[in-house]
Design a protein around this nucleic acid. Structure first.
Lengths: 127, 127
DNA sequence: CTAAGGTGTAGAGTTAACTCTAAGGTCAAT
DNA sequence: ATTGACCTTAGAGTTAACTCTACACCTTAG
């Protein structure tokens, strides 16, 4: 497929797609005889994965490393397994911290809602 | 306390502390007669909270909004409660997605570890 | 054959969030 | 009174990750 379709199917700007290619994040690209880029189905999958990771706060460098390790022609499985374990630990830590944040936000939400209720009686917000 | 101590106790660069003040993220600042900044204990607490949120991927704008709502002289509790609920929902969604990522990374880690084991026999990584 | 619309490259511009530099004021100790 | 370690501001520089502009080439419908 050409760049317009990949752009449409991934929601990633074509300039960004070319940028990703340049920095080595998107490697599944061929060229047609007229020098247009020709993307395989796999490119859609990779880019959707990139968006997924990116939205969760991974850096491009991290995503590159993970995708490279997952690519089937990856050189070193041993190394790849280590990377996965390391990333999983980081993700699990983040989940723990976010859970703490969620609890805190829930508490504060209830506190503020109660104050808002009181305010409707007294006219003042905070107690 | 002066800026050196706040820098030491929060691990946040003094330039960054002044920057945070300028953009309204750090409001608990007084001045001594010689125009030096004089921070109350509360500033340490706020800055540690900022670091906590920042490391979890919140933007400065988001952190500002949350801290403002938590500040005891906050104007509108009603609005604050809504903000907390909204942020909590976003955090909970992120936790769900990160959990999916964690599962995926775990699977890939095991797959790669198995391939590495096989490689030790055959000399080839991927099957 | 030409105009519209898709594609190419190179490189400039943008935004967030710092991080640092320069030039100068303050203060405690020698 | 000078030195050195503080502090001040204004503004420049940096990094990541885009996003856009300019200009030229390719393709297809009328």
């Amino acid at each position: 497929m050409r760049i317009a379709e990949l752009e449409y199917r991934t929601g990633i700007n074509r300039h960004t797609l070319r940028y990703y290619e340049k920095i080595g994040l998107l490697k599944e690209v061929d060229r047609t005889s007229n020098n247009y880029r020709d993307y395989p189905e796999k490119a859609v999958e990779r880019m959707n994965m990139v968006r997924w990771f990116k939205d969760l706060g991974f850096s491009i460098r991290e995503i590159s490393a993970v995708l490279d390790a997952l690519r089937s022609d990856s050189i070193d499985c041993e190394q790849g397994a280590l990377l996965m374990a390391e990333k999983k630990a980081a993700v699990d830590h983040k989940i723990t911290e976010l859970t703490r944040v969620s609890v805190m936000l829930g508490k504060e939400q209830r506190r503020l809602a109660a104050s808002a209720e009181a305010a409707r009686q007294t006219g003042q917000c905070e107690a």
